[in-house]
Simulated scan of single mutants.
Amino acid sequence: MRLILLGPPGAGKGTQAQRLVERHGIVQLSTGDMLRAAVAAGTEIGKKAKAVMDAGQLVSDDIVIGIVADRIDEPDAKRGFALDGFPRTIAQADALEKMLTEKGLKLDAVIEFKVDETKLVDRIVKRAKETEAAGLPVRKDDNPEVFAKRLQEFAALTAALSPFYRERGLLHTVDGMAPVDEVTDAIAAILKETAAV
């Protein structure tokens, strides 16, 4: 099972990816998490990514594709993966398709989370407060100003991915503002329909 979870920041992709991991034994490939791990480890890629991420910008395609390509070769990704937060641009989608083809792999489905962007800002502010209350560090991109910038970037770049994947017959949509369990059920129905499970 090889999936892409598509939608703006805060749409619930990470939550649903975790449920897919538990239910199907696949791995969640969050480029944000992979990049944060590289930053924490102080790798060369991590150092390059840190400055870019701290500014609320996107890291280069080459860095991200390299991280994804290495990650899907690891043993725990053999059963499949759910890409969360990648690709973000048509260029990345093309590079991902090429890289998967070279590995003899293909995507099973792209699940797009449709959301009300005005309500997303409230969701992010709440997430930051809950993280802080739990005594955990708040992500720099959970700041309302940085988040608003990320939403603008999403609208400018990532929205073009919907037609890209629709043309390939891979695009399916779910209501990202629905209760979490309903979104999980909608994704399960899509996976059954596409025979990804």
Rank of each mutant, 00 (worst) to 15 (best):
E130H: 07
Y165L: 08
M177E: 14
A109T: 08
L83W: 01
I187G: 07
L83V: 06
R168N: 09
F154L: 03
F86M: 06
A148E: 13
L100W: 04
T173F: 10
D181K: 12
T194K: 06
F86Y: 06
T173H: 13
A159S: 15
E167D: 14
A133E: 12
V115I: 15
K126N: 14
E167Y: 06
F164C: 10
L96Y: 04
V180I: 15
K149H: 05
G169H: 01
L83P: 05
L107S: 07
R127F: 03
D181S: 11
P179G: 11
A156K: 15
K192M: 03
L105C: 08
K149D: 02
A128P: 13
I111G: 11
A148G: 09
V125A: 07
Q152F: 01
V180M: 11
F154K: 14
A128Q: 07
D94E: 15
Q152V: 13
M177H: 09
A189Q: 11
L157I: 13
L136Q: 15
E132T: 12
L105Q: 13
P137K: 08
T194F: 05
A178D: 07
P179W: 07
G135T: 10
K119F: 02
T118I: 12
V183P: 00
V115G: 04
A195R: 08
V180N: 03
F147K: 13
E102W: 12
R168W: 05
A159N: 13
A82H: 02
A178H: 01
L105P: 09
V121H: 08
E112Y: 14
E117Y: 08
D175I: 10
D122S: 12
L191R: 00
E102H: 15
R123D: 00
M99A: 12
L170P: 09
L170M: 10
D181W: 05
V115F: 11
F154H: 14
K126W: 07
A155I: 11
A186W: 00
D142G: 03
A155R: 15
L157Q: 15
L96K: 07
F154V: 03
M177F: 09
T101A: 15
K106I: 05
A93C: 09
D116N: 13
L171D: 04
E132F: 09
E130Q: 12
V125T: 09
L100S: 01
D142M: 10
M99D: 02
V125E: 08
A159Q: 15
E167G: 11
G104F: 10
K103T: 06
K192T: 13
